[in-house]
Design a protein around this nucleic acid. Structure first.
Lengths: 124, 124, 124, 124
DNA sequence: GTGGTCTAGACCACG
DNA sequence: GTGGTCTAGACCACC
């Protein structure tokens, strides 16, 4: 599933899963209509608790990114249906840029990194 | 102190304080040598417990961003001494950009937002 | 857990816990992958508050010596990942040796004590 | 006075002064009968509060290393009169060695460092 | 006046 | 069951 868990990461595991799946959708790797791996299988692959994966899927469903149907698994719905407010991504962006500035990266380097990362994503 | 707490934010309060102070340092509002508000005063301003603010200050001290001394309060040290690995900001950047893409923002709009936010920061 | 608190010691309790755990790791008693006692259990054993132990664990986590995960407790990570600068141990060593000299120990006795203590540690 | 204060050091300032003076005595730089700098002068030199230096002197006096007489300042008494119990230096030694081991220093390197530091001290 | 530490006890989040 | 966080309030250490 191309997802990896980092035990050293301070984010909870379910959040890491959520973020990675979001990234895959943004990259276009997971497209509308694609069926996600069953909870049990993903849990086994990542060697994490079943409830952890279930929580991640529930969050994604809550944000409208996937639809979970009994028996048929979780399916990617739409990229634009997503319920992420402007506040959310602005906060995330600010925090990320602040970290980069404090790490001592010059403005030009930061912009380079942004465009490089953006190139990996299928923005309109 | 220009810091606000958002109860709706899922991050713990002390983390919000840490992030806001980091942002202020990145913006150049808090410069090297500036003394932060006393723990008790900031706690009163934000209407949170003294220990919560103390925890935030301790985290900042652990990251080398401030120096805390008993009788004299907390002082901003250096921006470049900060202990943040490349992994940290790259993950944060990726997550932020993915969120923006999923929010439906086109590539040009994203770059505009980035440069706009960056303008508020005192990057080299 | 082989840890003891000395009320007469001027170091704060949480620091004593940190230092004792470090010593156990250095001795090889606690090896990579070993799970530490749960916060609540250690707190009960030492008869101190839960938060005091939690603080100690957080410090150890900040130094990269242990990895703490919500449902699974604290695990010893790597001995070499530790974040301790050369300045730190040099200062500690100087202070210790100066104390021994002022206690009237002759050079040979000091060296004997050092090798004796070192024998208890699993140095490379 | 050959003493320096490190604001980044977590030890309180007065303790740093105490430790540095002890080191100077152990090195033989400050010998029996030598008069220490007046409190006010040392405070001015180090740019610290007068009470801080006074506290340091009081600790040294309490350990029997110096004698403070009205009007005539503080005088180094004897190196052997020192009241440092075996427990004290053993704890300090253990902590120092544990730090060095966790820093990844091999046994031989540790012994080299010890003898090197010891060479600077006038052990019997 | 500063910050540091500790306790008791509550409630939440994660796996 | 694990750890995380927060509060209220006390007392200590330092400058």
């Amino acid at each position: 599933m191309l997802i990896t868990i980092d035990p050293a990461d301070r984010r909870p595991i379910y959040q890491q899963i959520v973020d990675e799946i979001k990234a895959l959708i943004a990259q276009g790797v997971l497209q509308e209509g694609t069926t996600l791996a069953p909870v049990r299988q993903l849990a086994a692959d990542l060697d994490v608790n079943l409830n952890t994966v279930a929580t991640a899927y529930r969050v994604l469903q809550g944000e409208g990114l996937i639809t979970v149907r009994h028996g048929s698994g979780a399916v990617i719905t739409s990229r634009t249906t997503a319920t992420s407010s402007q506040d959310d991504w602005r906060k995330a962006l600010r925090t990320a840029l602040a970290q980069m500035v404090l790490a001592g990266l010059p403005r030009t380097e930061i912009l380079q990194q942004v465009t490089a990362e953006l190139r990996a994503l299928k923005a309109k």
